[in-house]
Design a protein around this nucleic acid. Structure first.
Lengths: 112, 112
DNA sequence: TTGACATGCAACTATATGGTTGCATAATTG
DNA sequence: CAATTATGCAACCATATAGTTGCATGTCAA
């Protein structure tokens, strides 16, 4: 949970995911191509993405191929974002009422 | 984008959102109730949630009332996570192929 | 076997983060 | 007005993070 959101909270990592979205099975060297960062920097980011299970890897000889792993993200984030969806729907009807309800006691005094 | 994911990448902040999900319009003092942290700590977290637009506030006298703001999250995250959804669907059919395709050249050699 | 290539590991630096405490300010109550 | 209450601001600390460089290891090709 924390790992996933934390992994996504970085532009470089989101860019790496974009690249893997465009084309899976890229090696570290592939992903370093045109990336404004040292190889080690990219490797670290990929490590974080791996640990968050957003990227899965597959060794092939001396090359480590990286793939986008969409499954856990879909499961976890969706469930969590769903909570916001619910709130969103509720908000359409309740948001203003909610505020007004909380204001009422004070407003009554103000009115008096 | 970064702000939103970063804000969500912390258990304390997710807990605060949970609380606001249960009941909107809580003040800082309300939210501190039973929270294992100093008031300033909570205030900082709320500040981060505000900056990420996940929480909106409404001043009322000396009380700052906090509300879950589901709209921007729904919009932004959904669009971004949607990309993963696409990959997820594609993955159901392509994931193994993708790997196998990348293995083929080497496997042919191995086979030969 | 030797050299080249892909990656990993470790140490280091600067800055960001999560948390604290202390004091200042603004609004409510009596 | 005075006391209380709700919040904000600032400094500080420990640790984590993003990035670097240098070297070690493992795999492929000639």
């Amino acid at each position: 949970m924390t790992d996933i959101f934390h992994a996504l909270a970085d532009e470089s990592r989101r860019l790496l995911l974009d690249r893997l979205f465009e084309k899976g099975g890229q090696s570290l060297t592939d992903l370093c191509e045109g990336f404004p960062m040292s190889r080690q920097g990219v490797a670290k980011h990929l490590g974080i993405l791996e640990k968050a299970n957003l990227v899965s890897v597959h060794w092939q000889g001396r090359s480590k191929l990286h793939y986008l792993n969409p499954v856990p993200l879909g499961d976890i984030v969706h469930r969590w974002v769903g909570k916001f969806e619910d709130a969103r729907i509720a908000a359409l009807t309740d948001f203003k009422d909610q505020i007004e309800d909380n204001q009422k006691p004070k407003q009554e005094k103000r009115r008096a």
